[in-house]
């Protein structure tokens, strides 16, 4: 196997992202302690653990919201100590949030179009000087966005300000906005939390479809064990900021440390 010289050459099954020895603390609270794991191209990688285990913090480090105190992230063969959210997005990392973060005053369409920001590469002044080509560009991006809207079965809410939508649909729009970025790595933080059974099944289907049809690599935080077992290829388990298990779903399920962590057995 040759080393990837250019980022796009990572084949399915190769390591897409590797977190090495990541530590992060807030004042006295150690959110993450020496966590290492990797995500392979094309897989669905679940991150699980009890409340406060550090799952969201891990995603925040990966997409640059938090700077790790120690450790590095290697993405597509490029190793970094620090990365800013803007850069993470440019490198092809998209995400959703545990507590939905949408542009509430904007329509579904505009939320997804905002996801295209980085794909619209023309400069500000070009945009002002030559409105014509800029409009042409809008049309192309609009087509892509409409595809995603159809895929997520939300054409009826295209023009609705998303702040008015029910929670389940908001989560779906948020997924749509992340997909509009055409990411290489998609980070989903509890995409099914607070949903009813039917909405959960829909969401599972979208996640599987995104993974299968677009080949998007997915890191998924989820509390529902059934969902995790069904969807994921590999699972990493965090507890009190440390990695306590890592492997195939049914292997992890039988791991004594994991069972103890979920039952709240004292360390």
């Amino acid at each position: 196997m040759r080393a990837p010289s250019s980022p796009s050459e990572i084949a399915a099954g190769d390591v897409l992202l590797a977190a090495e020895n990541i530590s992060l603390s807030f004042g006295g609270v150690k959110a993450l302690t020496g966590v290492s794991f990797d995500i392979r191209k094309g897989e669905i990688r679940a991150i699980i653990g009890p409340n406060g285990a550090g799952k969201t913090s891990m995603l925040n480090v990966i997409n640059g919201f938090y700077q790790a105190d120690h450790g590095t992230i290697t993405f597509k063969g490029v190793r970094r100590g620090k990365m800013r959210p803007y850069e993470a997005a440019e490198f092809g990392i998209a995400r959703t949030f545990q507590n939905v973060a949408l542009f509430r005053g904007m329509s579904t369409l505009d939320n997804l179009m905002a996801g295209r920001t980085l794909k619209m590469r023309r400069s500000f002044f070009w945009h002002i000087l030559r409105h014509g080509p800029a409009l042409q560009e809008e049309v192309e991006h609009r087509r892509k966005v409409e595809e995603i809207i159809d895929f997520l079965e939300i054409p009826h809410i295209r023009r609705v300000p998303v702040g008015r939508l029910p929670y389940g649909l908001q989560k779906r729009v948020e997924l749509g906005r992340a997909l509009a970025m055409e990411p290489e790595l998609l980070l989903l933080d509890e995409p099914m939390a607070g949903m009813n059974l039917e909405e959960k099944e829909d969401m599972c289907r979208y996640i599987i479809d995104v993974n299968n049809h677009f080949g998007t690599t997915i890191a998924l935080i989820e509390h529902d064990m059934g969902v995790v077992m069904d969807l994921s290829d590999r699972v990493v388990v965090l507890d009190y900021g440390r990695k306590i298990a890592d492997g195939a779903p049914n292997q992890v399920k039988q791991d004594q440390a994991v069972i103890d962590a979920y039952l709240g057995v004292a360390h």
Partner: peptide, 20 residues
């Protein structure tokens, strides 16, 4: 596009950052 980005930032800083 810039106008949309402006409205996006006004609505949510962290969501705006996440889309680049």
């Amino acid at each position: 596009r810039i106008g949309r980005a402006l409205r996006a930032v006004a609505d949510s800083h962290k969501a705006a950052l996440s889309v680049g």
